[in-house]
């Protein structure tokens, strides 16, 4: 739920025009505590791990590797992976390879609209260190500067088998409670925002997309 807005904790939303200011929330995101009873949290994590809803948003060339996951050969439905078309319902965001600055803006918007706990898988070498786009004027080098990443699957391109292995690894991590990217994002919110605004020059969206 949106916490009541206190005056010292609001975002400027300077990128929005005057008539758009009222349309978007200016509240800062808040960190969420796990359930106080450990058994409940473990059970919740088990549910989250066994029902991974991937945001069907293809960024970059690696998105082509997501399609075979659902086909007869790999059938990711077996291990609880399913695609959801809207960020509101998805819990896993797979960054498919390189991300240009223009795409990064959409990634940030989509990531912030996802409801926590949310997990990010970076696919391919490009989100790790730039890959073959090492010296590109329009491609970011490290994704973890802009959104928190839980799992890297490296390669150029990783095959769908590796994606299945990555999903299994992510399940293991979620069950152990090691994936808390949403709260990391909230805690280092200003650092992430500064990094994002450094590369996204045309910032015409709210500072936090509820």
């Amino acid at each position: 739920m949106i916490k009541s807005l206190s005056t010292d904790a609001t975002l400027a939303n300077a990128g929005l025009s005057a008539e758009e200011q009222d349309l978007f929330s200016n509240a800062r995101p808040t960190a969420y505590e796990p359930y106080s009873i450990k058994a409940v949290e473990d059970f919740a994590n088990w549910c989250r791990a066994n029902s991974l809803w991937i945001l069907a948003f293809g960024t970059g060339c690696g998105a082509i590797e997501l399609r075979p996951l659902m086909t007869a050969r790999f059938d990711a439905n077996r291990i609880g992976v399913a695609g959801r078309p809207t960020p509101r319902q998805a819990s896993v965001f797979i960054i498919g390879g390189y991300s240009s600055v223009k795409t990064l803006k959409r990634i940030v918007r989509s990531y912030e609209q996802m409801q926590g706990p949310k997990f990010v898988i970076a696919l391919g070498i490009c989100p790790v260190n730039g890959g073959m786009y090492w010296d590109s004027y329009n491609t970011i080098k490290r994704l973890d500067q802009y959104i928190p990443v839980d799992l890297y699957i490296t390669g150029c391109m990783p095959r769908p088998e590796v994606l299945v292995a990555g999903a299994l690894e992510l399940k293991k991590m979620i069950k152990e409670g090691r994936c808390d990217g949403a709260n990391r994002y909230v805690e280092n919110f200003d650092w992430y925002k500064a990094n994002q605004k450094k590369v996204i020059k045309k910032w015409d969206m709210p500072d936090y997309n509820w």
Binding site: V101, K102, K105, V128, N129, G130, W134, D135, S136, Y137, N138, T139, I140, K141, R142, Q145, N195, K198, V199, I200, K201, K202, W203
Partner: peptide
Amino acid sequence: EGWEEIPPMRREFDTVEYCERTFTSR
């Protein structure tokens, strides 16, 4: 979107310098 430098495909544009100035390397 919102490009502030000289157009990047012009050869006097120093891509490496811009890249190192803007993006964080690992």
